[in-house]
């Protein structure tokens, strides 16, 4: 009976852990998708703010053509790449998305740096409001990205750990998902050039 009990117990444990892995994997998979939707959502929000911002800056600094066009182009590029939760598995598409958004971030950084040279623009109520909204959105993007990073880390762990990796591989055909990289953060964190 003793041996029998142990066998039974191990059987119970293995089956339950394996069985729960199925639901848990589905759960974390959904979580990553939800987190990704939030990231997209916030990036979209930023893109929506830009036309107004560009128009406002144009009113005071129309001759800063290069910077203004740079922002418009970067925005077009960023909004042109659609990454749905389903295509999220593709690391190349993810990379492209990340690069386009990073490009827009640095173009925006240049635009705001230029604004420093125009006291009238800086004092403009409309511009200040847009700037507050932009800051708020950047912060939300940071939060959404952090949540996505956490979710994907959790998901990738489950996809790789034994025994859930078996469930992931043979039953659900789930693969690791790409995550945001620090290399991109470095590019973003590079301060824009300020000309005096």
């Amino acid at each position: 009976m003793g041996k029998c009990g142990i066998t039974l117990f191990s059987f119970l444990m293995i089956v339950s852990v394996w069985g729960c892995g199925y639901n848990d994997l589905q759960g974390v998979d959904e979580d990553t998708k939800a987190a990704w939707s939030e990231v997209i959502n916030q990036y979209q929000r930023r893109a929506d703010l830009i036309p107004n911002l560009v128009a406002t800056v144009k009113g005071y600094a129309a001759h800063e053509k290069d910077t203004l066009e740079g922002v418009v182009q970067a925005r077009a590029q960023a909004t042109g790449i659609q990454v749905t939760p389903e295509t999220l598995k593709d690391p190349a598409a993810f990379e492209k998305f990340q690069q386009a958004q990073a490009g827009l971030t640095s173009a925006l950084g240049r635009l705001l740096a230029i604004a420093e040279n125009y006291p009238n623009l800086k004092a403009d109520q409309n511009f200040r409001d847009l700037q507050s909204q932009l800051e708020g959105t950047e912060n939300r993007i940071a939060v959404a990205r952090k949540r996505y990073i956490d979710r994907v880390a959790e998901y990738n762990k489950m996809v790789r750990y034994f025994p859930t990796n078996l469930t992931a591989k043979f039953l659900l055909h789930l693969e690791e998902k790409p995550n945001f990289t620090v290399a991109d953060e470095k590019a973003v964190a590079k301060p824009p050039e300020v000309k005096f």
Binding site: G136, N139, R140, V143
Partner: peptide
């Protein structure tokens, strides 16, 4: 829960 909304 908080999603980073607000202002500084």
């Amino acid at each position: 829960d908080f999603g980073g909304g607000g202002a500084s």
